[in-house]
C-alpha cells in the first residue's frame, strides 16, 4: 500500500485556504468542540460578534444537517455510512470566509435536495426572507427538523450564491457538497 503523504494533503488544504478540516462521524460533542475552536480562532481575526456568529451559524447548520439527514433514515448501516462520509472545511480565501461540507446522499434523495437548492439559488435576499418567514410560521413541527429552514438561513447569510454539487460515487449514493461563502 502506498503511504499517505500527509504533507501533500496539508499543502493542498493550505492552497484552498482551509483553516480547519474535519472528516468522520460528527457527534453533537464534536460539533460543539469544533465550534468552540472556530469561535476562539475567529475572535482573534474578527472584531464584530455578529460576523463571528454568522460563520459559526453556517458551520452549525451544515454539520447538523448532515447528522439530521443520517438519523432520519431508518437503516442503521446507511446511517453509519452517511455519518462516516461527512467532511467539513472552514477556510479563508479571496478575503472571505467559507464553510464547505460534503456527505453521501442516497440516490433517491438527490432530486428533491437538488430542486430545493436550485430554488434557493434562484431567490434574491428579499425572497429568501419571505420563504424563511413562511417556513418559520408554518405550524408543522418536524420539517426534517428544520432542514429546509437551515438551508435558507445559510443562503441568507451568504455573501455570494451557494455552490453545490452532486457526484455519483459508491453504489446507491451521490456525494453532495455545499459551499457557503460569508
Amino acid at each position: 500500500m502506498k503511504e499517505m503523504n500527509i504533507l501533500n494533503l496539508r499543502n493542498k488544504l493550505n492552497r484552498y485556504g482551509v483553516i480547519m478540516s474535519f472528516t468522520g462521524p460528527f457527534s453533537q460533542g464534536i460539533i460543539e468542540e469544533i465550534g468552540d475552536a472556530l469561535r476562539n480562532y475567529l475572535e482573534t481575526k474578527m472584531n464584530s460578534r455578529g460576523e463571528i456568529f454568522k460563520v459559526f451559524s453556517i458551520f452549525i447548520e451544515q454539520t447538523q444537517n448532515i447528522k439530521n439527514y443520517a438519523y432520519q433514515l431508518p437503516d442503521e448501516n446507511t446511517q453509519e455510512e452517511i455519518l462516516l462520509s461527512g467532511i467539513l472545511n472552514i477556510g479563508f480565501k479571496d478575503e472571505k470566509y467559507f464553510v464547505s461540507s460534503g456527505n453521501l446522499v442516497k440516490n433517491e434523495d438527490v432530486e428533491e435536495l437538488k430542486e430545493r437548492l436550485m430554488k434557493i439559488e434562484s431567490y434574491d435576499k428579499k425572497e429568501l426572507a419571505k420563504v424563511y418567514r413562511k417556513i418559520l410560521r408554518s405550524k408543522k413541527e418536524d420539517d426534517n427538523d428544520g432542514a429546509g429552514l437551515g438551508l435558507i438561513e445559510m443562503a441568507r447569510k451568504a455573501s455570494e450564491n451557494i455552490v453545490f454539487n452532486f457526484e455519483e460515487t459508491e453504489q446507491g449514493y451521490h456525494f453532495f457538497t455545499l459551499t457557503i461563502r460569508i
Binding site: L136, D143, L149
Partner: peptide, 9 residues
C-alpha cells in the same frame, strides 16, 4: 446570543 434554525423554530 445564538439560536440555530431548529431552536428558532
Amino acid at each position: 446570543s445564538y439560536l440555530n434554525t431548529s431552536s428558532t423554530k
